[in-house]
C-alpha cells in the first residue's frame, strides 16, 4: 500500500503507470471518489485501468476518513478536500495540470479544485457531480442523516452487520457520521460562486443518470460553464459507476482520447 503524508494526514494512494506510451499525454488523470460508502476501489476496478491502457498515468487516492486513508475527527469541509488534493499532488511531485475524474462528491471536490487552482486543471470529467448550489447542503444533510439512521437501526444496518465485507464499512460510516465533524462541515459549505464557475475555461464532460436525484445540477453547470458537454444515460439513477460501467467506460475513454489529442 502506498502511503503518503499530506497536510499531516496519511493517505492511501495508488498510481498506475501508463500502459501505452506512444500516445501518453503529459497530464496525469486523477480519480476522486464519492462520500461515505465510497473509496478508490470503485474506480480501481472500473475506469482506472482502461485509462492507463489508453496512455495516462493514473492517480487514485482515498480521501481522508475513507478507504485505507487515516480517519481524523475534523477536516471534512469541501475546502479541506480541495486542500488535501492540492497537497497530495505537491507531495507526488505533480505540479503541472491534471485531468480530474470525480464521482458524486468527488465531482464537488473537482469543481472546487478547479475554482481554487484553475492553472492545475487541464480538463474534468464529472460523474453524477454534486454542485454546491443553494439548497445542496440541506439535501446532503438529509442524505447523511438517512444513511446514519439506516445503518444504526434500520434493516440495511442489520443486513450489513451480518456480512463481513459490509460490516466494516458500515461501522466506519456510522463512526464517521457520529464522531467526526463531517455533517457540520458539509452543512457549513458555502455555495460555489456562479462567477467562479463561469470563469472556468477548461473543458468539462458531465455524465448523469436519467433518474438521478441530482440531475438538476447538470442544468446548473450547463448554464455556467463555457466548455461543457453533457451525456444523460437512460434508465439509471445516481449509481451509474456500478450500474452502467460499460457505457461510462466508453465515454471516459472517448473523453480521455480527445484530451490526449489536444495535449499531443
Amino acid at each position: 500500500m502506498a502511503e503518503i503524508i499530506a497536510r499531516g494526514v496519511r493517505f492511501h494512494v495508488q498510481r498506475l503507470a501508463s500502459r501505452h506510451r506512444t500516445s501518453q499525454p503529459e497530464h496525469p488523470v486523477v480519480f476522486i471518489h464519492g462520500l461515505l460508502m465510497d473509496n478508490l476501489s470503485s474506480f480501481y476496478y472500473t475506469l482506472a485501468n482502461p485509462v492507463a491502457h489508453a496512455g495516462a498515468t493514473v492517480i487514485l487516492y482515498d480521501m481522508r476518513g475513507h478507504g485505507l486513508s487515516e480517519r481524523l475527527s475534523t477536516g471534512y469541509r469541501v475546502n479541506d478536500s480541495v486542500a488535501d488534493l492540492a497537497a497530495l499532488l505537491d507531495v507526488l511531485g505533480v505540479d503541472g495540470p491534471v485531468h480530474l475524474v470525480g464521482n458524486s462528491y468527488g465531482g464537488t471536490v473537482a469543481l472546487g479544485f478547479a475554482v481554487a487552482c484553475p492553472e492545475r486543471v487541464a480538463s474534468m470529467m464529472l460523474i453524477e457531480a454534486h454542485v454546491p448550489i443553494p439548497g445542496w447542503t440541506e439535501q446532503m444533510a438529509a442524505t447523511i442523516t438517512n444513511i446514519g439512521s439506516d445503518l444504526t437501526g434500520g434493516e440495511l444496518g442489520r443486513w450489513m452487520a451480518q456480512h463481513r465485507k459490509h460490516a466494516r464499512s458500515a461501522t466506519l460510516v456510522r463512526d464517521m457520521i457520529a464522531h467526526t465533524s463531517l455533517m457540520a462541515d458539509i452543512v457549513a459549505t458555502e455555495p460555489l460562486a456562479e462567477e467562479a464557475l463561469r470563469a472556468l475555461t477548461c473543458p468539462v464532460r458531465a455524465v448523469y443518470g436519467e433518474h438521478s436525484d441530482v440531475l438538476h445540477h447538470a442544468d446548473v453547470l450547463d448554464g455556467l460553464l463555457s466548455r461543457y458537454t453533457l451525456t444523460v444515460l437512460p434508465d439509471v439513477d445516481h449509481w451509474i459507476l456500478p450500474k452502467a460501467t460499460q457505457a461510462l467506460r466508453a465515454i471516459t475513454l472517448e473523453w480521455f482520447t480527445a484530451q490526449a489529442s489536444v495535449n499531443a
Partner: peptide
C-alpha cells in the same frame, strides 16, 4: 473471495499491492 472470505473491494486493492 466473496462468499467465503467476504473480502471488501478496498481489501482487494490491498491484496493487489
Amino acid at each position: 473471495f466473496d462468499s467465503d472470505l467476504q473480502l471488501e473491494s478496498i481489501e482487494f486493492v490491498r491484496l493487489a499491492t
